[in-house]
Design a protein around this nucleic acid. Sequence first.
DNA 1: GAGTGGCTATGATATGTGTCAAGGGAGAAT
DNA 2: ATTCTCCCTTGACACATATCATAGCCACTC
Lengths: 236, 236
Amino acid sequence: MSSTFQNPSCQHCKDRFSSIFCKAEQCNLEQIDQAKVCSIYKKGQVIFHEGAYPFGVYCINNGKIKLSHSGDDGREQIIRLVKAGDIMGYKALLSNERYTATATALEDSSICFIPKDLFMSILQKDASLSFEMMRILSSELRKAELKITHLAQKPVRERLAETLLFIKETYGLEADSQTLNVRLSREEIANLVGTATESAIRLLSEFKKDGMIELEGKKIRLLDMTEIIRTANLQD
Amino acid sequence: MSSTFQNPSCQHCKDRFSSIFCKAEQCNLEQIDQAKVCSIYKKGQVIFHEGAYPFGVYCINNGKIKLSHSGDDGREQIIRLVKAGDIMGYKALLSNERYTATATALEDSSICFIPKDLFMSILQKDASLSFEMMRILSSELRKAELKITHLAQKPVRERLAETLLFIKETYGLEADSQTLNVRLSREEIANLVGTATESAIRLLSEFKKDGMIELEGKKIRLLDMTEIIRTANLQD
DNA sequence: GAGTGGCTATGATATGTGTCAAGGGAGAAT
DNA sequence: ATTCTCCCTTGACACATATCATAGCCACTC
């Protein structure tokens, strides 16, 4: 699936061509640019809340967002990490239901809002945008199903290693090309792995003792990638 | 989302209007009807296999199918139960990757195959079909994410009760309005719940002892629905 | 009728992981 | 500085659940 730079004049695409809107036709992009409303969310601020009705989709200009369910007992499960160029809130919109997850800023973020009616009407006209949307949904579904299998079958240790790799894939590394380019609390890491906070802490300490990673507050440096991959025990 | 009976002449819709193709325009339906290839799969037979390349989508005329990942250690995780009127194989097609799951017939089933090119070209022309496709994908994604949360947070007992309800929702009950209308092995139930076969067996026995269900070979009768719902501890 | 293989059931046991409790460290507010 | 608060860390413990082993049951075959 090539992510060709189709619309050089598209503001959404200028610095990140991965955005779905690069797939849209020129005239539609202009409409979106006119109607969108951008705003800044502070770290910790909620963009939308589980149970609320969706009025549009959100497109991240820059920043980092977590999408999470809050389980029955109040424990949160992080479903997805969102980065610049990604969109969010489309699932509730397309299935015509309320939000099933809460979006919270992991750091100060700049986010555009695109109203529902506009988004839907353009989706109706613009087949390549629809295709891109379906591609995104399919890919998310694939990831979710893989996660289900791993949650059911893999021990926490493997899942934690996998999660570290996942964070790296999503947000990348800092200039030193070792440090994960995001600050997550231990609790958030645990909620990503699907385990108790204490278990996550204990295993991170083990990883450190084994020389796989280095810890410094919320900074996590991946020292021995091959060993981390081996521990994650990935095969599919 | 209304499932209006839009095309009375659509062969796919004659007896089950839930099929996605009811959303398609008339002319496109005729094309599909011409190009589709129907065949019968025996119980236990594999329709497509994890890792293979997709050449089209499958539409179930009647029968029951399980979609499953085979985990690293060979244990299978059942991802979805497919019923008459449903389609399958679309995820790999739309994301342009190989199948991530294996489809196996749970009983003798009649299944249509629709070639990739046709399906994609109609999807391109037919916005309402695209919307329906996106609706399906969104809804599957919602379910998958909910399952992730429950796997991470709920004990096996609750998940088993939930699974019984899920099977009932999917395949319904027999004439006595108590017996689940599908025969699954204990192992398959365990792979649906995400637990060991022995654990599933033990808990089913407990449910029986508590008067919630009745067991007779692979037949499962739901006696006390309110108690099952209570045990599932659903809240979202 | 005896043998075979697959599924179901149940007991014994081991262990991974969650939970509870207490302590420690860093930064913010006063 | 000092307190406060939040997060991290570690230990002890209990428990749910996986694993291993064994046996019964049923359908089928030879």
